[in-house]
């Protein structure tokens, strides 16, 4: 089941690439790099989340920083 999810994620990422890649002309070098980096980051994160669904996210960090202030307001 998990490997099926990975396959599904890979298919989605490939579809995005197939849709977007031909549209980028040769002089858009930077854009290609940005596209590849963001897409790979998305793929990696998605696969990580399939195997470790309780991976601590940015929300947990924000929780840690801002919760004391938030609690202060509720008093």
């Amino acid at each position: 089941m998990k490997w099926a999810s990975v396959l599904g994620i890979t298919v989605v990422v490939m579809l995005i690439t197939l849709y977007e890649w031909p549209k980028m002309t040769k002089n858009l070098k930077k854009e290609k790099w940005a596209f590849v980096t963001l897409t790979m980051a998305g793929w990696l994160l998605a696969v990580l989340l399939v195997f470790l669904p309780s991976l601590p996210g940015p929300n947990d960090l924000i929780d840690m920083i801002f919760k004391p202030f938030g609690k202060l307001l509720q008093e």
Partner: peptide
């Protein structure tokens, strides 16, 4: 050009 990064950002 911002169009190429729309779908990757949507995925994120």
């Amino acid at each position: 050009n911002y169009r190429p990064i729309v779908f990757p950002l949507g995925f994120l």
